[in-house]
Design a protein around this nucleic acid. Structure first.
Lengths: 116, 116
DNA sequence: GTATTATACCTTGAACCTCGAGGTGTGAAA
DNA sequence: TTTCACACCTCGAGGTTCAAGGTATAATAC
């Protein structure tokens, strides 16, 4: 009911960010959650309730593989990007870019510049 | 059930585009649907099932007002942006821009450039 | 004359996604 | 020994998009 203070614009973004991070190196869930906040200087932040289910989904799809590792008595699940996942990332990144460009130019084309 | 071939990235965008168009001039639903396709060179397109309910919702919220007009024997519902709607557009546009920038720089920061 | 297309409005159900809250357990620090 | 950080996980609510289907009029094509 309460008007959402920060609107959507987030659909599909978690997948994009996760794939992007895993392209560089193997990572575990908790680390990914923190990395997204850090990389974007808090502008973007996804809770664990978003990231964990997404990770599971991507693994089922074959975009990721996982292995359990014990580090300092702690159990972590590390994820690695597969070839399929890398391909998926390429497509997503391209789709996102073309969409963002289209929206950006539409906003710029406004007769009266948006002012806050 | 079928894996969506083209992912989301669209959440909140219809509202942004509709508000943006109405900032320039009074428009009717069908016209808006066509205008979005045209303005973005087909990159973005929302069906009437998205636009009409959104228009109704925005009117309820007080961001838009409407009036019926007869043009060439056809009945059209024209929508106008209110002050509240203009304010809302300003906020949305700003939010979208900062989000897009954060994502863009995150993608650019990738060690291995995304290739399709 | 009649069938089809374009214009113009609308609703509904399915599917998807994010978000917040809640739950379990270990190790380190206070 | 209590609290905090780490690390995993699930569930329900709420909000959106999307495809499809429905009504009706005007113009165009056959």
């Amino acid at each position: 009911m309460a008007r959402d203070p920060n609107p959507n614009f987030m659909a599909g973004v978690p997948e994009l960010m996760v794939l992007r991070l895993l392209q560089d190196r193997e990572m575990y869930g908790y680390e990914i959650v923190e990395a997204i906040k850090t990389e974007t200087a808090e502008v973007i932040s996804f809770g664990e309730g978003v990231v964990y289910p997404l990770l599971h989904h991507l693994e089922e799809e074959g975009a990721l593989t996982s292995r359990r590792k014990l580090v300092g008595g702690r159990s972590r699940v590390y994820y690695t990007l597969t070839a399929k996942g890398a391909r998926r990332y390429g497509q997503l990144a391209q789709t996102w870019t073309s969409l963002a460009e289209a929206i950006h130019s539409a906003l710029k084309g406004a007769r009266h510049a948006p002012e806050l």
